[in-house]
């Protein structure tokens, strides 16, 4: 193996919104993830490099970064699949402010979940019997198809509409709202439908589908948002959005 094949040239964003990419030479190993690369740089080359991770196994959704121009979950992204000519370019997630280096500020992302009323509103107490939800019911199937979001922010960073319209709630918050409108136990439907029908709501989606192409969980937020559009339009016609 030649020297160039043994090492990767990795350009890593250093700074905040103002900054620059800095090159590092990193040993190229088999079965190496992008998160491994970033960790190696921090441990052996530059301990001041800031990034975010937790589980390292694709569950927590905290390690998403921009890799060669595309948002990805770095702990499950193999270098061999994304490196081009022995080079990698790693930056923070797009559409979010940069705290430092590879750590994006997720505040706006999660605030939009709140704005979308994308949280469960219980209708029963622990004293009530557990609601029986048939797994094959249409609502449960729709919810199940969208439920495995890990809040990584990849869809939000990939979304053109988020980039163009700062008010837009984004694919993740709306996808979560879709799971809740299909939850028969939830008592917050009216408030939620109003929230996602307002300015910045689901009707701003252009269905570019970057979210469903890049979602590491293979979810389809575009389909969830289309469902919300149908639901809110029907609710408006029935006079249910007052």
């Amino acid at each position: 193996m030649s020297q160039s094949q043994q090492h990767l040239t990795v350009s890593v964003w250093r700074g905040k919104s103002e900054g620059a990419f800095q090159d590092y030479q990193v040993p190229h190993l088999e079965n190496q993830t992008v998160l491994d690369i970033v960790t190696w740089i921090q441990r052996y080359l530059d301990p001041t490099l800031s990034y975010r991770f937790a589980c390292r196994v694709g569950m927590c959704g905290s390690c998403a970064m921009t890799v060669n121009g595309t948002p990805r979950w770095t702990c499950r992204t193999h270098v061999s699949k994304v490196a081009r000519d022995g080079r990698l370019k790693i930056g923070p997630l797009s559409n979010l402010p940069v705290i430092k280096d590879l750590a994006a500020d997720m505040t706006a992302f999660f605030e939009k979940w709140q704005r979308a009323e994308a949280r469960f509103t219980p209708t029963k107490t622990r004293l009530d019997p557990i609601e029986q939800i048939p797994p094959s019911s249409p609502a449960r199937l729709a919810a199940s198809a969208a439920i495995e979001c890990i809040n990584c922010g990849v869809c939000y960073a990939a979304c053109d509409t988020v980039r163009w319209n700062a008010d837009y709630l984004g694919p993740a918050a709306l996808n979560r709202a879709w799971t809740l409108v299909n939850d028969v136990r939830d008592g917050g439907q009216d408030v939620r439908l109003r929230a996602i029908s307002a300015n910045g709501g689901c009707h701003n989606c252009h269905s570019h589908q970057s979210c469903q192409v890049l979602c590491p969980q293979n979810l389809n937020p575009t389909a969830s948002i289309a469902g919300l559009k149908r639901l809110t339009a029907a609710a408006f016609i029935r006079g249910g959005l007052k």
Partner: peptide, 8 residues
């Protein structure tokens, strides 16, 4: 855009 403009 809100739901009214969307429908219109």
């Amino acid at each position: 855009m809100d739901v009214r403009l969307y429908l219109a």
